[in-house]
């Protein structure tokens, strides 16, 4: 009897352990199922969708009367014609390409690269004076033409140049608006106030630091100035 009583006393521990094991098994199976489900959704189904087996074999219909497709010779002729058309779109003379992301330029002549180097373009700074007045210093993208060329350019400081320095904005023709020798020896105008010019801050070439103009070092600027005539195209991206 005593033995039996003793064995009865041990029993309550067994179901508790069993329940704990059961719970662990429950969560393990659930976690495994969820992992399998995730694998199915992220790997198996995309693989299945990308399998050639799911596509039905196409059956060709009878050719309707009067419909003929171009033969290889015609296709080749069309390709040649289209390729020539595209080639003709690239200017035959000289043109400049400016990459505002890498701050580099590429000068082409007769469709051949003749010079490339670093430049500086717009800083993407938005200067806010108040709620109504602000300026975004960004180099415009697209295709432009050289509108004018000048030597020894003088910078006529716009309003933002004063605002940026915390100075009061002077009248339109105030002498303080004119600065000499800061734009280098040459400047090429792209219109709307945007110029390709030189810089005193050569260490910033290759970086986006300008107010929208394109800055170059003295040698590159001279080459660009000498090469690009008025009317030449400038592609900025």
């Amino acid at each position: 009897m005593e033995e039996e009583t003793g064995s009865i006393k041990k029993d309550p521990g067994l179901p508790a352990a069993k329940t704990r094991k059961g719970r662990i098994a429950f969560w393990l199976i659930l976690a495994g199922a969820m992992l399998l489900f995730a694998w199915w959704m992220l790997v198996a189904v995309p693989w299945l969708k990308n399998s050639n087996l799911i596509f039905a074999k196409e059956e060709k219909e009878e050719q309707p009367v009067g419909q003929e497709i171009a033969d290889l010779k015609d296709l080749k002729a069309d390709i040649g014609r289209l390729q020539k058309k595209i080639d003709r779109m690239t200017p035959g003379g000289v043109y400049l390409i400016v990459n505002t992301s890498d701050n580099t330029f590429f000068l082409y002549k007769d469709k051949k690269l003749i010079r490339n180097g670093l430049c500086s373009t717009g800083s993407y700074v938005k200067l806010e004076l108040n709620d109504e007045k602000n300026w975004v210093f960004e180099t415009p993208k697209g295709v432009f033409t050289i509108k004018g060329k000048i030597t020894s350019p003088v910078w006529r400081k716009p309003d933002w140049a004063f605002v940026e320095e915390g100075l009061p904005v002077p009248s339109a023709n105030d002498p303080s608006r004119y600065e000499y020798g800061v734009l280098g020896d040459y400047a090429l105008s792209l219109g709307s106030g945007y110029l390709i010019h030189g810089t005193l801050y050569k260490r910033f070439l290759g970086q986006p630091v300008t107010h929208g103009c394109i800055r170059m070092n003295d040698e590159d600027l001279e080459a660009v100035y000498q090469t690009l005539p008025i009317g030449a195209k400038v592609f900025i991206y």
């Binding site: 800083s123 993407y124 700074v125 938005k126 200067l127 806010e128 004076l129 108040n130 940026e164 915390g166």
Partner: peptide
């Protein structure tokens, strides 16, 4: 466009 806003001094 990685624009940085700068308040005028």
């Amino acid at each position: 466009a990685p624009i940085t806003i700068k308040k005028a001094p």
